[in-house]
Design a protein around this nucleic acid. Structure first.
Lengths: 205, 205, 205, 205
DNA sequence: AATGAATGAGTGTTCATTCAT
DNA sequence: AATGAATGAACACTCATTCAT
C-alpha cells in the first residue's frame, strides 16, 4: 500500500468504478492469488480482471513480489481482524471455534504454506519476514485464546501454539475435493471437524 | 551452478551406471514435484537434477503431464503400502497412528490438493481420475481401519472418511515452517498432534 | 547473418520510424509465407526480418496460425482487388487475361493449395473457412467474367469455375525453375501460356 | 538405393513382410513426402509407418536429405515409365493425354516445385541437380512427343517444352479441394481440362 | 542387421519487466 | 495517472542425428 488513502466506510464497496485502483488491484489480485497460487497468476491476468492494463498494475506496485506481499498482508489482516472479533467475542469456546472454522472453510483456497513455498524464491528476505510476521500474529492471537482457556480449565492443557497450527491445518480439509462437493456440505464438515477436535477419538467412559 | 561438465555426446551410453534412467527420472521428478509443485518444476530442471538432457526426459515420458501423473501415482503407491503395512500391523491404534504421522510429517511437501489444483488444467480427465483414485484408496484404507475401530469401541463413532481426511490434513502442519524447524522437532510435534486428536480439547472429568 | 546490432532496450520506441509495426509484420510475414510456406517460416525469422523480437510479433498477433491467416487474407484481398480491376477494365478478354497472368507469375510463390495443406493442421476450422472463402471469391470473380464472355460468344462454352481453376493452375508454371530463369522471361512465358489456352492445341483449319 | 537387390518380379508386392526394408522405407517415405511435403514428414513418422525404428531408417539412408532425394527419384522414375508407356503407345494424342492426366490427377499430392523449394535448403547441390534432372527427363519426354506431333501437324506449333510444363501445371487442379471433392469427379475434371487445352477458348468459326 | 538411448538445436508461446509518452 | 509498445528469459515440446551394442 503506497500511501494513506482517505479512509473509506466499512463494508464491501458497491462497484469497481468507485474504488481507488490501488485497492481494486489489491483485492482482485488477493483473490486470484488465494485461489490459484503465486505462479499461476499472471499480472496480465490481474490487470484484465481489473479491467485495466498491465502497465497500470506496475504503476501501483513495483513488481509481482511486492504485489503478492501486499496482497497476503491484506488478507492476513482481514483474517486476523475477523478471527479476533469472533474469538474475543461472547459464547462458548467451542462455538466460537465453529464459527471461525466455518468462515475459513467456506472459501477454498490454496494452502498458505504451499503458496509461500511457491512464491519464496521470488521474494526478498524482508518480504518473507513481513508475511511470516503477519501469519505469526494470527497464530499468536489464537494461541493466547487457547492459553487462557487452558488456564481457566475450559480445555485440556497442551502447547497452545501447536494447537493453533493444528486447528488451522485441519481446515485445509476444505480443499479436499473428493470429500466436500461430493458428499458433505461445508457447514456439516466444519461442524464435524470441530466436534472431532473437541471430543477426541478416545471414548469417554 | 556453473560447473562445466563436458556433456556426453549423443548415442547409447556404455552400459555401466547404477539405476535405470527410467526410475532415476521418476524418483527425482517425484521429489521435485512434491517439494515445489507442478508449475515450478521445469523439465529442464528435472533433467539437470538427473544429469541428463531435457530431450532424454522426453524419451522416457511423453510430456510433463504424463511424468507428473506417474510421479504422483508412484508416490501414492509408496504411501499406500507404507500406511497399510503400519496400520494393519500390530500395536494399539494410537501408536500406529503416531508412526504414520511421524513418517508422513518427516518429508515436508506441497499440500496434495493444492498441487492438484495447480496441475489440473494441464492434465487430461483420465490422468486426474487416476491420481484421484490413487488418493482415494489411501483414504479408503484409513477409513476402513477407523470404521473397524469404531465397531470395536476403540474410538468414538463418527464419519470415518471425514476422520481420515482430517487426520491427513492435520499432518500438513509439517509445512508450517515457523512452528517446526524453529521450535519443535518433528517427532515431538507429531506426538503432540496425535495426542491432541486422541484426547480432544474437552477436559476429562 | 551474424551482424551484431545493439538490440533496442525494452520500452516504447521514440515514435519516429516509418511504417506501423502492425503492417510491417503483416507484409513481411506474408512475403515469407508465400515464399517458403507455413512450416518453414518461424516467428523468430519473421521478427528478425522486421528487425524486432519474437515477443513483439506476439504483441500484435496472437499466434502463428492467426498471423498466417491474416497474411493470407491480406494477400488474397490484394490479389482480388488487382484482378477485379484488370478483369473488369477495358480491353479484349485475352489481353486482360494476359495482364493478370503476367502479374500473377511475376512473384513466384508456394502453390496455394500446397500451403493450405501444410498449414491446415495448425489452423482452426474457422480460420480455414475464412481463407477458403477469400480464395473462393477470387475464383467466383473470374468465373463470372468467363460466364459472361461465354454468353456473349467471346469464348467457347465450358464450366466457367473449372476454367478459372485451370487458368490459375497454369500460372504455377512460374514456380518451374528450370523453365523460367533459365530459358524464358516471365513476360514471354505468360504470353505463350495465354496464347496456348486461347488457341488450344487443335490446329485451326 | 544402397546396392543391387536381387531382382523382384514386377507388380506390387503383397505385403510388407516380404519386402526388403530398403524398398519398404523408400515406398512408404515416398508416399508420405508426396502427400505432406518435406518438412511435415519426420523420420520418426516414416519409421512408424514402416513398423520399424528410426535408427533403422538411418541404417539404410544416410540422412533425411538422402532419403528424400531417393524417394523423389523413385517417384520420378515411375512417373517417367508410366508416362512413356502411355504416350508412346497407340491411340490419338488427345486420348493419350487424357489417360496421363487422369492418372496424374488421381493421387492428389504436394506440388512438385513447392516441395523442392521447401526441401532445397536441406539438400546438397548434387542432390538438387539429380532431382532436377529426373524431373527434366519427364519434361523432355513429353516435349519430344509434342514436338513430333507438331511436325506431323497434329497440333499447332508452339514451344514444346513450355507446353509440357503447362500441361503438368494444369494438373495441379487436383489439389483444389474446393473444386474437386465437392463438385466434380476427378475423371470428369481431367476430361474437361484436356478438352479445354485441346480446343482453346477461342470459338471455332 | 537393427536398435535403444542419448543429444543439440530449434520452435511456438508466455510472462515479468521496462520505458517513452 | 495511465498506457502502448517493446524486450529477454524461460518453458514445453519436436526432430534430425549419433553411437554403443
Amino acid at each position: 500500500m503506497k500511501e494513506e488513502q482517505p479512509r473509506r466506510r466499512p463494508g464491501r464497496p458497491k462497484r469497481s468504478e468507485t474504488m481507488q485502483p490501488n485497492l481494486l488491484i489489491l483485492r482482485t489480485a488477493a483473490m486470484l492469488f488465494m485461489e490459484h497460487g503465486f505462479e499461476k497468476v499472471s499480472l496480465e491476468g490481474v490487470a484484465k480482471a481489473c479491467r485495466i492494463t498491465k502497465a497500470s498494475v506496475y504503476y501501483y506496485f513495483d513488481n509481482k513480489a511486492k504485489l503478492f506481499t501486499e496482497c497476503l498482508l491484506f488478507v492476513l489482516k482481514i483474517a486476523y481482524d475477523q478471527t479476533a472479533l469472533i474469538m474475543r467475542g461472547p459464547g462458548m469456546l467451542k462455538e466460537r471455534l465453529l464459527i471461525v472454522a466455518e468462515r475459513h472453510m467456506n472459501n477454498a483456497h490454496v494452502e498458505f504454506e504451499t503458496m509461500m513455498r511457491e512464491a519464496a524464491p521470488g521474494l526478498s528476505e524482508e518480504q518473507i519476514k513481513q508475511i511470516r510476521d503477519g501469519e505469526a500474529q494470527l497464530h499468536i492471537l489464537l494461541s493466547e485464546i487457547f492459553a487462557q482457556a487452558m488456564e481457566e480449565g475450559v480445555i485440556t492443557k497442551s502447547d497452545p501454539l501447536l494447537l493453533s497450527h493444528t486447528f488451522t491445518a485441519m481446515m485445509t480439509v476444505r480443499n479436499h475435493k473428493q470429500l466436500l462437493n461430493d458428499q458433505k456440505s461445508v457447514k456439516q464438515a466444519s461442524a464435524e471437524i470441530v466436534q472431532l477436535l473437541w471430543n477426541g477419538l478416545q471414548p469417554r467412559s
